[in-house]
């Protein structure tokens, strides 16, 4: 019988090694798999490249991972936000490499990786500093730049409900990068707010079909889940 649920976070993260590319879902703190990030800190893998929209805030989660010296490079669209103190410190000290990618290009590069598309053209960044060094091409009189797919070794995502087959649904704005990143990595690890029996999730409404998911670990006690539990199934 297929069962993608693993026993604990350590099992969920087994195989993550130094130097790997790790995608982390979420937008701000919503949909961010905090328990998996904590587990990654404990696992101790270094020299990681992190793909995420933000570069962490405060001294928890992604910021804590960076502060622990585990991140060599971050690929994101919005590194600076309220409380991104760890990023600022490391970046200024030259201890962190940064690749700034417009948010739509970031999402599409991830999607392309999941869809087997090596590159695509977009009008975003044309005529700006971010287009420097990029190949461009004219289609129907308009200039576009070439962007390449962004693959990962591992994607860490948070889902609202999952089943043993790996099917996922997300909650409200918690879907964000999670559903795209789940497609783009060799191994996709899901932090689930709750498991349901196979057949319970509405097949018409499954967002991430189980084929994209390798491992699921249930972490019901996130702050988000506790508060949201009251209002939703």
């Amino acid at each position: 019988m297929i069962n993608k649920e693993v026993r604990d976070i350590a099992d969920a993260l087994s195989g993550i090694e130094d130097g790997q590319v790790v995608m982390v879902g979420g937008f701000g703190s919503v949909g961010q798999p905090d328990a998996l990030i904590e587990g990654l800190i404990e696992r101790g893998a270094r020299d990681l490249t992190i793909v995420a929209n933000n570069a962490g805030a405060g001294r928890i989660g992604l910021a804590k991972l960076m502060e622990a010296g585990r991140v060599r490079k971050i690929i994101c669209s919005f590194p600076r936000s309220a409380g991104s103190v760890v990023f600022e410190e490391l970046f200024r000290a030259g201890k962190l490499e940064l690749e700034i990618v417009p948010q739509g290009t970031l999402a599409e590069r991830i999607r392309a990786a999941g869809a087997g598309i090596p590159g695509f053209y977009t009008a975003t960044t044309v005529g700006t500093l971010l287009a420097r060094g990029k190949e461009s091409r004219v289609f129907d009189g308009r200039t576009y730049v070439l962007e390449q797919a962004l693959h990962a070794d591992v994607a860490l995502v948070e889902a609202w409900r999952t089943d043993r087959m790996g099917n996922c649904i997300y909650r409200e704005s918690g879907r964000n990068f999670n559903a795209v990143m789940a497609m783009a990595a060799r191994t996709t690890v899901v932090q689930s707010c709750g498991m349901v029996a196979a057949g319970v999730l509405d097949s018409e409404a499954i967002v991430t079909p189980g084929i994209f998911v390798d491992r699921i670990v249930v972490v019901p006690e996130t702050a988000n889940a506790r508060i949201a539990e009251a209002g939703a199934a």
């Binding site: 669209s77 970046f91 700034i100 417009p102 971010l130």
Partner: peptide, 10 residues
């Protein structure tokens, strides 16, 4: 070297 572009360009 680290400006936050977000979705502005898109």
């Amino acid at each position: 070297s680290a400006p936050a572009v977000g979705g502005a360009m898109d």
